[in-house]
Design a protein around this nucleic acid. Sequence first.
DNA 1: CCGTTCACTGATCACTGATAGCTAATCTAT
DNA 2: ATAGATTAGCTATCAGTGATCAGTGAACGG
Lengths: 216, 216
Amino acid sequence: MNGLGRVVQRSSAASEPEHVDRRRRRREAKRAKIVAEAWGLARRDGLAAISLRDLADRVDLQQPSLYAYFDSKLALYDAMFVDGYRQLLAILARHTFSDDPREALVEFVELIVRFSTEDVVRHQLLFQRTIPGYKPSPEGREVTRALLAVGTERMVAIGVTDYDTPVIFTAMVAGFAHQQVFNDPGGDRWLRQVRPAMEMFLAEVDRRTKPRKAKR
Amino acid sequence: MNGLGRVVQRSSAASEPEHVDRRRRRREAKRAKIVAEAWGLARRDGLAAISLRDLADRVDLQQPSLYAYFDSKLALYDAMFVDGYRQLLAILARHTFSDDPREALVEFVELIVRFSTEDVVRHQLLFQRTIPGYKPSPEGREVTRALLAVGTERMVAIGVTDYDTPVIFTAMVAGFAHQQVFNDPGGDRWLRQVRPAMEMFLAEVDRRTKPRKAKR
DNA sequence: CCGTTCACTGATCACTGATAGCTAATCTAT
DNA sequence: ATAGATTAGCTATCAGTGATCAGTGAACGG
């Protein structure tokens, strides 16, 4: 090691001295803390009722300091949006799906419905366009695309290759999640019907994929 | 007619002189005007972004005067809620459904999906819990109950009598409306799949209502 | 040790929904 | 016709909101 160890470090990753990295890490951690507290506030007061002053209090800052972490309130919502989708994607990635693709499909839908009921405001932000000026950022669009990919994977697994069938499928998933969240918050009235509904859907898929007599 | 015509009128409807009625009518008309302008503002700026000052300008009032017509902003949202459901109920009442109850079911769902896409913010207010403190008033709950009654009627018409099948049905209606509104605002990607989806649903209903061999 | 960047603050702005107190105009009853 | 009451609207003001700006002190770099 020569006289200035960190100079060597820096040369390895062009203009990235270690303490700068540490600072960035601290900053990222605080950003995450803010987002986490924002979820808490949203659950308490409603998604659209988050107050930046309340939020600042919770993370030991003054209100204007939040603007060092987020360009605007909408940017905060966007961070929450991305965070929420990452939570769902993590759950899906963690889950070990059944080998039977039909069973796996049921599990997939049930996971999404359960995820939605776990946190109403999260469901609102992720699946409904409720905040007036908000449009997902490129990063936001990427996580939604990632979820779509997981869904497409499940469609392919049951042999769906056409364009129309997934349209019906997504409507059903959205509908069950929505109804469970808003019409039976604490219960499982719609969740319990996911399986029979998916069996109905799979019967339809069978009818479509093999038009006439074929055993499988 | 005697000397004081309106005195006679008054006696006819116990403590309701005609000019009082006229005042009430004027007041009711202004209330309706306010609600109508509020819809316009909501469509322009977003449902949660309605400003009472903007709204007051549109109906030639000062902002505090709105409180003579609505106790609070939430009360305004409630009036819009009731108004929106009445619009939908009117459409359903006006429509002459097919004699074939299965065809009528398709029409029913398509009407609702079309209604939703006609006005995104109306769909938001009616079918999603998006305004933080808002809970429908008794009047609001009544119009939702009225819509439920129409749906139940359609279920009965196709021979559904159990408890679970309508749960699936409502999820599908909600899902198609939601997806059409938010994932294909101008188009008809989900609307076009309502019919095949309903045929799938009706096949399932057949399976459930006549378990084994029966022709019909 | 000097200069720069970072993290944060206090003051302030325009705007929001809501309330209080007032003023005409309109209607009621004598 | 006129005193009293009700209605419909106003101005002024409140606390709270998101956003902006100039400034401060500490940490870091050469």
